[in-house]
Design a protein around this nucleic acid. Structure first.
Lengths: 216, 216
DNA sequence: GGATGGCTCCCCCTCATGGGGGAGACGCTC
DNA sequence: GAGCGTCTCCCCCATGAGGGGGAGCCATCC
């Protein structure tokens, strides 16, 4: 059975784009659309989607209030993926506090969007790596490392990512961790998926941008 | 005899900060200040400093031209340490090509600033510290200055490295720069050689560690 | 003029990388 | 006990990446 998604955005163009990107996936089905937050609750009750992809800035009822309302009024609420244009959107922080499971930038590439939908639907939290640092700053007493944990990296995956940021190859990481190269490849693939990275270079960039590691 | 330093920066605040940091060292003496590049040459002739700490972006005469002018017009030129606010290094690489001996980010910690001044004054160069050391080790009796020259990126190579640090593939870089992928591969190979990196991931790491780019 | 260096593009080649599957062992929770 | 997640390892496969060559064009410098 496919992954069912409800789209909520006041811009028809954005909805059309998301529908095109997501419907192209065999395992994802867009079951409905809404143009504002007020229409979300009845649609969620009626359609029972696995995930709601929702803009944070909308008329009538914004993403924060809509998220809160959905979580209150539905017994088995869908996962909620908040969509935003800006990285440093204070609305995102509010939405995450209200219970959203992750957020995504509108300018993300299609592959990243699909990846984010799948990850959040599967229960992992997802924060766009470049924004983790800012969120960590906003949370104040929360460390960047803890914010990174919201991206659901396991201990071993974090070990692997750390060695990746030292420039090690898979074979060298395997030697360092005393495991097989196939194991390292599994972990690397998991890291790439969770960070929304296409290759290890992008993963290292995400690690620096997120504060997972710092220069010097 | 103390290490004599001439400060050149158009911002009085920066000069005051550098003076405070450097004067606190018993072996370093700040012998003069200048607010723009045009004032550098007469001051160098008059004061004969061991080292000039110079901002790259200045009115009238920028750091690149000032560096070139000093090296041309003085028989025994001082070491030149280029200071920059940004990791966006068009100017820095221009200055290094013009003959500067190293560069430093303004946001460096005081200890790093002092260290950089001492190192450059002693004849060591600061560029990509890790890469320079590797190159020096590889080429044995090669001086640090020669190693740095090898590590001085051309403009095009800097362009490529910058796009590498944004996670782009060779094909994407080629598209962005409107050249062929073979050309990009040539530049990438040159960048890897100059940075002492084995692959693009290590090059990106070197870029972050050196301040060529910075997170956020 | 010749030399140098940067930018461009081409060939061939090897191999690490990453995606697609799957599977067993272990420890945890329900 | 069953289920789940993590860690471990395996297969096949396509391809991007990087090394080692070479070459032409152009600007600058001597």
């Amino acid at each position: 059975m496919p992954l069912t998604v409800l789209l909520v955005d006041d811009e028809p163009l954005v909805r059309a784009g998301l529908r095109a990107v997501l419907s192209a996936q065999p395992d994802i089905e867009v079951v409905g659309e809404a143009a504002d937050g007020a229409a979300v609750i009845p649609l969620v009750r009626q359609l029972r989607p696995d995930l709601v992809a929702m803009d944070v800035r909308m008329p009538l009822l914004d993403g924060i209030e809509a998220t809160r309302a959905v979580l209150r009024s539905v017994s088995e609420p869908p996962k909620i993926l908040v969509i935003t244009t800006f990285e440093n959107d204070e609305y995102v922080y509010g939405a995450l506090r209200a219970g959203a499971d992750g957020f995504l930038l509108k300018r993300s590439r299609p592959a990243e969007i699909v990846n984010a939908v799948r990850l959040v639907a599967e229960g992992d939290s997802l924060l766009f790596p470049a924004a983790v640092r800012r969120l960590a700053a906003e949370y104040g007493n929360t460390s960047a490392r803890e914010a990174m944990d919201r991206a659901a990296l396991t201990e071993r995956e974090a070990d692997v990512l750390r060695l990746m940021t030292r420039g090690l190859s898979n074979a060298e990481i395997a030697e360092r961790l005393v495991v097989g190269t196939e194991t390292v490849k599994s972990h690397v693939s998991a890291v790439l998926a969770k960070l929304g990275a296409r290759d290890r270079t992008q993963a290292v960039i995400a690690a620096y941008e997120s504060g997972f590691v710092s220069p010097g």
